[in-house]
Design a protein around this nucleic acid. Structure first.
Lengths: 167, 167
DNA sequence: ACATTCCCAAGCAAAATAGTCAAGAATATC
DNA sequence: GATATTCTTGACTATTTTGCTTGGGAATGT
């Protein structure tokens, strides 16, 4: 299974986009600042999101990105798939050649797990996330932190730890 | 999320151990051959499994490993945790300092997902896996392949593809 | 004694991840 | 039409993780 920072960043960025819907196109620079993600890294991710029509773009001054469909229609699983290629937990990626061209002992276990995760993530839409109280609180905090950063403070790191899988 | 070959190998090896329960201690060399896993890699994995008391070991000729508890009492989630350290999908590993020392926008999403996966994997015991028809079929195939290999054929690779994650 | 097996630590190559850098194309605004 | 802004693309790089090897040792049955 592949669930790494890449997928987390993508979902976070898409959620940021949803939360600022209605303010016109949002620039990647804005998202980068609010969410603490590298701008050029975001560019790579959005390139993939655009290919899957999850976002639409407008170039030039005043341009930026907006959601490709409504927040109710975009599911977390889609977003992760778009940037991470697959969320399969089997070694053979669904083929059955994990061991000497035949299925390995635990093939079905990983296969079932993948389905489980996939169906879980595909039930959660960006709208669902926006409706969560905790998400709105963090979003508020981030919108205010903006001002602090403009006044010169708190331009900082966001990192530290480990990983899943990643994942 | 961290669900890689390491965790898959560990579960596979533990399942192999369960399936050959009653034959006395099983050597890692046997498991390595049946499951197509490198012996020294298995040693590393079993070192961790032993620290968590998931397996018990007997040294010397005729020695090997056996399950540390009954197959009903060992759950897939435990095995993966033992070798992979954690199956947390959050960046901060459960702390809430994902962004500038505060929780990031999607913290709860990954946290919920981790719980979901964890509880799923902790419901499946090695015994459950053994009861599956597909597992028994593969196990039979592997026990027969043993003979082929003794007669000189089919000492071979087992590899190829991609991964999860991480996850 | 000796072969077998577990045990342990260090090291290493390949892959993946996370990120940078540089050049370019579209498009508003002046 | 010059300029600044923003997306777009590709190549390149540093770091980390993975999967595996090597080489030693310590028990223990025969």
């Amino acid at each position: 299974m592949k669930l790494t920072t890449k997928g987390r960043y993508a979902v976070t960025a898409m959620l940021d986009l949803s939360l600022h819907y209605g303010e016109g196109p949002i620039t990647l620079a804005d998202i980068a600042q609010r969410q603490g993600i590298s701008l050029s890294y975001l560019e790579q991710l959005f390139s993939r999101l655009r290919k899957k029509s999850l976002v639409a773009s407008v170039r030039g001054p005043g341009g930026g990105y907006s959601l490709g469909k409504s927040a109710e229609e975009i599911f977390v699983g889609e977003v992760i798939s778009a940037v991470d290629e697959n969320i399969d937990t089997t070694r053979c990626n669904g083929a059955h050649n994990c061991q000497n061209n035949e299925r390995c002992l635990t093939h079905d276990l990983w296969s079932d797990l993948s389905n489980q995760i996939y169906s879980y993530l595909n039930k959660i839409s960006l709208q669902d996330l926006m409706d969560r109280k905790a998400v709105r609180e963090v979003a508020d905090r981030q919108d205010h932190a903006d001002h602090d950063e403009l006044s010169g403070l708190d331009i900082s790191m966001a990192d530290g730890s480990n990983d899943l899988a990643g994942a």
